[in-house]
Amino acid sequence: MPTLHKYLTSITPIILAGFILFTSAGCEKALSLKDPSANATAIFDELWTVMDQHYALFSYKGVDWNNSREQFRTKVHDGMSQTALFKVLSDMLADLKDGHITLISPIDTFTYLGFYTSYPDNFNYNNIIYNYLQDAYSISGPVIYKTESGVGYLYYRSFADDVTDQQIDKIVTDMTQTRGLIIDVRNNTGGNTQNVDKLVRRFITAKTLMKFEMDKKGPGHDDFLDPQPYYLSPGGQHYNAPVVILTNRSCFSSCNDFVLYMSNLPQVTLMGDQTGGGGGIPRNYLLSNGWKLQYTSTVTLSPAKEIVENGIAPDVSVTITPTDEANGKDPILEKAFQSLQ
């Protein structure tokens, strides 16, 4: 018996250890760390719910998201193909008419492009390069620029292409003797807002309010924090002559921010067509099947607290007709050049 007692005493802690190990595995299951279902109905519900809780523009867009669910949920069933599911989700997202909404899958990508496809281009890059710059221009980072008859011109194709402070300083230094500057951001569909900030700092002389941003504070469609101000302070080489900014409908997202910031400044004139908008900040979410959803998560307001989601109107509206374009002419650029003479 003493031997049995000794044996039991020795194995008890081992049994206890085993129980603890077994319990640990059970606890992990109880905390639901397994991946959720990736069937079609689950993916539809997940996408709809993420948008419902995080998308910032339902009220502004005037879309009844519950109604969208009723309309599109009936088209989804678990046996459907990935292609068919993608189409249903894309059609539902397209109703929001938001260029920041994107659905990326291995089979296809959805992006709403109506913010510019429904309007004239008002820009021809080849005409600029060959007929106006005559294929002779300087390059500093992602920016091409030239000085002609005392007026400077620069074209920043995409704010997704990073620019350094040194590169901007070089441009401003080369433009020092000009009596005016044309900044062309037509067809710039946005990118990194830090590039916008670096450029705008050259045109201000004091800390300046650029915009307000409203973040969501909860899942309700109108659950927002108070608008938060966004300021920029001067930096780098300063340019103090008049500026004309050329815009069209393809100027979107960060480009829209750039135009918004510059439109606050007294020495700046906007010329061309209204920008494409896209003021809010986009965010990503990974669906359970690995598809990536992008949506607008904030509301951007001008310093006067007006929503700029649909774009910024120019001070001077100028259009390029098909005849102009066929003849290699750019009336928007020419009008800007004349205004700075």
Binding site: S32, L33, K34, D35, P36, Y285, L286, L287, S288, G290
Partner: peptide
């Protein structure tokens, strides 16, 4: 480590 952060994804 295994983590699910539902603001980012429901995948683990």
């Amino acid at each position: 480590i295994s983590i699910i952060d539902k603001d980012f994804s429901s995948m683990s």
